[in-house]
Simulated assay, not measured.
Amino acid sequence: MMQEKLYLAVCDDEPEALAQICEALRKALHRVEYRTSCALRKFTSGMALYEAAVKERFHLIFLDVEMPNVNGFQLAEKLHLMASDAHIVFVSGYEDFVYDIFEHAPLAFVRKSMLDYE
């Protein structure tokens, strides 16, 4: 049986946070011995991610909430309007945003401080 490749996207305007999220994903996938191959695309701009999502299919998208030009909530809405079936995980250093995410029906909300949690 052929397994489908899992396409992931991570978007954060801060390069250090982007690297931290990607490393946490790598560790998590390794820890559960995830057997399906993954393709991970990194973005430092919400609009760059949106333009890629118009052309490519992502299964899971990790979005920083606070970004310049288009924030994570606005981007999630744009993705929803284009009928993307990607699951969204919001990532933020501010836990106050957890109450604002529900209208966007994300898969999860992750605090950046919890990314290094073993």
Score class of each variant (00 low, 15 high):
Asp13Cys: 13
Gln74Pro: 12
Ala19Met: 07
Glu51Ala: 13
Arg31Ser: 09
Glu103His: 07
Met1Phe: 01
Lys42Tyr: 05
Pro15Trp: 04
Gly93Ala: 15
Arg111Ile: 07
Leu6Ile: 10
Ala86Ser: 15
Leu79Glu: 10
Leu107Lys: 07
Glu4Gly: 04
Lys55His: 11
Phe62Trp: 02
Leu115Asn: 04
Glu23Tyr: 00
Ser37Ile: 03
Val110Ala: 06
Cys11Phe: 00
Ser37Thr: 08
Tyr50Cys: 14
His104Glu: 07
Glu33His: 13
Tyr34Trp: 14
Met82Asp: 04
Val32Met: 15
Val32Leu: 14
Met1Cys: 00
Arg111Ala: 15
Lys5Ile: 10
Val91Ser: 07
Ser45Thr: 02
Gln20Asp: 00
Glu14His: 09
Leu75Gln: 09
Asp85Tyr: 06
Ser92Phe: 02
Glu95His: 12
Ala52Tyr: 06
Ser45His: 03
Ala9Leu: 13
Val89Ala: 00
Glu51Asp: 15
Phe58Val: 00
Leu107Ile: 08
Asn69Gly: 05
Arg31Gly: 02
Asp116Ala: 05
Met67Asp: 08
Cys22Trp: 00
Asp100Thr: 08
Val98Ala: 13
Lys78Tyr: 14
Lys78Asp: 11
Glu16Gly: 00
Leu40His: 10
Ala52Thr: 06
Glu51Gln: 15
Phe90Glu: 01
Asn71Ala: 11
Ile101Tyr: 00
Glu103Tyr: 04
Ala39Gly: 09
Val32Lys: 15
Arg41Trp: 13
Glu14Thr: 06
Phe58Ser: 03
Ser84Gly: 10
Leu115Trp: 05
Tyr117Asp: 14
Val98Gln: 08
Val91Tyr: 01
Asp100Ser: 11
Ala48Tyr: 02
Leu49Cys: 03
Ala24Val: 02
Cys22Ala: 14
Val10Lys: 07
Val70Leu: 15
Asp13Arg: 02
Ala39Glu: 15
Asp100Glu: 12
Ser113Glu: 15
Ile88Asn: 00
Leu40Tyr: 11
Gln74Asn: 13
Asn71Lys: 10
Leu107Val: 10
Gly93Ser: 14
Leu40Val: 13
Ala86Asn: 07
Leu63Asp: 12
Ile61Glu: 01
Met47His: 08
Ala48Ser: 13
Ile21Glu: 02
Gly46Gln: 10
Glu95Trp: 07
Phe102Pro: 02
Phe97Gly: 04
Phe73Ser: 12
Gly72Gln: 04
Pro68Met: 08
Ser113Trp: 00
Met47Gly: 07
Ala108Trp: 06
Val91Cys: 15
Cys38Lys: 10
Tyr94Gly: 06
Leu60Glu: 05
Tyr7Met: 12
Val65Arg: 01
Ile101Cys: 09
Ala76Phe: 08
Leu25Pro: 12
Leu29Val: 06
Lys27Ser: 03
Ser113Arg: 11
Ala48Phe: 02
Ala86Thr: 03
Ala39Tyr: 13
Met82Cys: 11
Ile61Val: 14
Cys38Gln: 13
Tyr50Gln: 10
Phe109Gln: 10
Tyr99Met: 06
Gly93Thr: 09
Val65Leu: 05
Ala39Cys: 14
Met47Thr: 12
Tyr7Lys: 15
Ala19Tyr: 00
His80Met: 09
Lys78Trp: 11
Phe73His: 09
Leu18Gly: 07
Met114Ile: 02
His59Lys: 05
Gln74Ala: 14
Ala19Gly: 06
Leu49Asn: 04
Ala39Lys: 12
Thr36Phe: 11
Gln3Lys: 02
Cys38Asp: 08
